[in-house]
Amino acid sequence: MTSYWQHYPHDADIGIRGFGASLASAFEQAAVALTAVSADPGKVREKESVIIKCNNADPELLFTDWINSIIYEMAVRKMLFSGFKVDINGAKLIAEISGEQVDILRHQPAVEIKGATFTTLKVIQNSDLEWMVQTVVDV
C-alpha cells in the first residue's frame, strides 16, 4: 500500500493523520501532516538533522510523544522538518528528522503548533497491510 497523510477538520484546531504499511511508516506520514499544518512540506529542504528518541509502552502515548517531540524541536530550533525516518521497536522509537530554519518569505508559515492533544487520538491497524494514526494538534 502507499503511505500517505491527511488533515481532518476540528473547530479551532486541526487533525493530522498518517497511513502506512507499518506503524513506523504511519508515524512518518503523520509527521509530514504536522509540518503541513504550518507550511508546504515540499518547500522545506532537508539541510539539518535531529535525532529523536521516545519510550512509551502505550502506542497512543508513544504517538503523541513523537509528535510533541517534533513540535518541541520546531519551537526551540525555529525549524521546519520534511524528512522523517522512524524505527519502532516495541515501546522504543528512534527517529532522524531533517529540515531547515524557518524562512518566512519562502515557507509562508501559517500557524505555529502548540502541542498534540488526545482528541480523536487513535493508533489502529486496519489490516495486515495498513496502519492509521491520528490526533488533533492545538494551534
Partner: peptide
C-alpha cells in the same frame, strides 16, 4: 505550551493511580 503538553501526559498516565474514571483520556 510545553507545560500543557507535559502535564496532559502525566495526568493521563496517573488517572488510574488516583482512581479517576475518565470518560475520555483528553
Amino acid at each position: 505550551h510545553q507545560i500543557g503538553t507535559e502535564f496532559l501526559r502525566s495526568m493521563a498516565m496517573a488517572a488510574n493511580k488516583y482512581n479517576i474514571l475518565l470518560p475520555d483520556r483528553e
